[in-house]
Write a protein that binds this DNA or RNA. Structure first.
Length: 490
RNA sequence: GGCGCCGUAGCCAAGUGGUAAGGCAGAGGUCUGCAAAACCUCCAUUCGGCGGUUCGAGUCCGCCCGGCGCCUCCA
């Protein structure tokens, strides 16, 4: 399998340091607010890689951190008049709920930064011993970028002294070099007020943002991780600084592969609260969108390409999902007949391989989807011609579908959502039978009225040779009132 | 200003120098009481523009036009 590595800027063959184990560290959300769909585009990419590696037989240790102490969480807690943990925890829970709603495989762990303060302190101590850290004019401990020769290699930035704000900040904070960044910030009154201060050899304070990931990755996954992931914005300065800290401390590479996910756009623009195009997963679900459709809409483009999120795209995703669900159900319910078979089985295996090859190629989802659609179309064609299927063909076809969906994670998720929305089935069945009687009596006006009525509830009827079937084509019966829970911070 | 990315049909979107995947929408057809679903056929002589390299370029190089990202908290 090949993955694009941002550090070497090339596609490289992926092989873990100690197979079959693969260690992955993905930068997670800062829990000062609800994660938005832009965050989740990145996290869906995490989950795709996670699933694909598992499918390829690797044992994946996937760690995604929760940043629960930084400027924004402290500000948020102070504004809410809450201790830091009480402010951040609902957002951490919400993130995990949304991840589950989108069908994420559970992460090996999702460490909160505040639980790793001792590890961070030890890391700074090590950097201090190695001559990489110093106390700035404001009393905080800074990393001396000039002490690390590899600085700037990942992002191509920071090699020369930058200008503007960082230089001005640098002067006021007493940094030796404007590029230097805080490892340990001395606690101020605001920090103390919300409990964001811990004892350390340098006085009460809190960790710098970059330090958190270095410490958690090292402590949970060891000195070098196989893959380190994040959104493209983290390339600089976050990941550049992580490298500087970790590699100066351990003398070993932080990661064998650096994978960065391109940002999502909404309606062609960068998503932001001020643009009014800020969406959360729960908001879309509350509007009646299927979480599986949201997932589909977030995985459609290659992870290194721009992806534009629109309502139209979400509707298209829902339709695509329905077609897959219909196909799967058709195959499952098909009459099995012994006889000549093998052609469909061979073709299914072939297309599953195409799918796998596409995913092996730096997670080329669009190409993988082409294999999926070909399977659906060719399968339907064959089933239109011959309405029965051999047991081996059926097994192979369903296995190919399940194999692909095991990586994409959408069909099973959509099916589960529909099942959980399945109340009132007896009533629907009664209406369907009433309509069948009307049709038999050629009372098509009544028949059509019943059909239209059910359609408004998200129930679609299909009149087939073997009778009328009904199915739920929406996850929910319509608009659901907002549920209790965290709301986006204004 | 510095670094980088992108521009493929009405829309979404692959394409790793060898002659344009896939999906949606649209047109026609099969099936149907009518639909729906499914299937079949059609739907880019052409890849922002102009030059160049090459036997051959959407793919490489140069310039131009247009869009975007990072450089500051950010997935």
């Amino acid at each position: 399998m090949k993955l694009y590595d941002s550090l070497t800027r090339q596609l490289r063959d992926f092989a873990p340091g100690s197979p079959p184990r693969v260690t992955v560290y993905g930068c997670g959300p800062t829990v000062y607010d609800l994660a938005h769909i832009g965050n989740f585009r990145t996290f869906v990419a995490y989950d795709l890689l996670h699933r694909h590696l598992r499918w390829r037989g690797f044992e994946v240790d996937f760690v995604v951190n929760l940043t629960d102490v930084d400027d924004k969480t402290i500000q948020g807690a102070a504004a809410a008049g809450l201790p830091l943990g009480e402010y951040t925890e609902p957002f951490a829970e919400a993130f995990l709920e949304d991840a589950a709603a989108l069908g994420f495989l559970p992460f090996a762990s999702h460490p909160r930064a505040t639980a790793y303060i001792p590890e961070m302190v030890r890391l700074v101590e090590g950097l201090e011993r190695g001559g990489h850290a110093y106390r700035g004019g404001d009393g905080s401990i800074y990393y001396g970028v000039s002490s690390f020769s590899g600085y700037g290699r990942l992002s191509g930035k920071g090699g020369t002294e930058s200008e503007g704000r960082s230089r001005i900040d640098g002067e006021s904070l007493g940094k030796r070099d404007p590029r230097d960044f805080a490892l340990w910030k001395l606690a101020g009154p605001d920090d103390e007020a919300v409990g964001a201060a811990w004892e350390s050899p340098w006085g009460r304070g809190r960790p710098g943002w970059h330090l958190e990931c270095s410490a958690m990755a090292r402590s949970l996954l060891g000195g070098t991780v196989d893959i380190h992931m994040g959104g493209e914005d983290l390339l600089f300065p976050h990941h550049e600084n992580e490298i500087a800290q970790s590699e100066a401390a351990t003398g070993r590479p932080l990661a064998h592969f650096w994978v960065h996910v391109r940002h999502l756009k909404v309606d062609r623009r960068k998503m932001s609260k001020s643009e009014g195009n800020f969406h959360t997963v729960r908001e879309l679900v509350e509007e009646g969108h299927d979480p599986a459709a949201v997932r589909w809409a977030l995985l459609g483009a290659h992870y290194r390409s721009e992806l534009n999120f629109t309502r139209a795209g979400l509707d298209e995703a829902a339709a695509a999902l329905q077609r897959l669900l219909d196909f799967r159900r058709r195959v499952q319910e098909l009459a099995v007949a012994e006889g000549a078979e093998g052609e469909l089985a061979d073709r299914s295996a072939e297309l599953l391989e195409d799918f796998g090859r596409a995913m092996d190629d730096d997670l080329n989802v669009p190409r993988a989807l082409a294999a999926l659609w070909t399977l659906v179309r060719e399968g339907n064609t064959r089933l239109d011609q011959e309405p029965t299927i051999g047991p081996g063909d059926r097994t192979a076809l369903l296995a190919a579908l399940a194999g692909m969906d095991g990586v994409l994670g959408v069909v099973e998720l959509a099916a589960a959502t529909r099942e959980s929305a399945g109340a009132g089935e007896a009533r629907i069945q009664r209406l369907v039978e009433e309509r069948d009687r009307a049709r038999a009596a050629r009372d098509f006006a009544l028949a059509d009225r019943i059909r239209d009525e059910l359609a408004t509830e998200g129930i679609r009827l299909d009149d087939t040779a073997s009778g009328t079937r009904w199915r739920r084509v929406r996850a929910t019966a319509g608009h659901r009132p907002p549920q209790d829970g965290p709301k986006p911070v204004e």
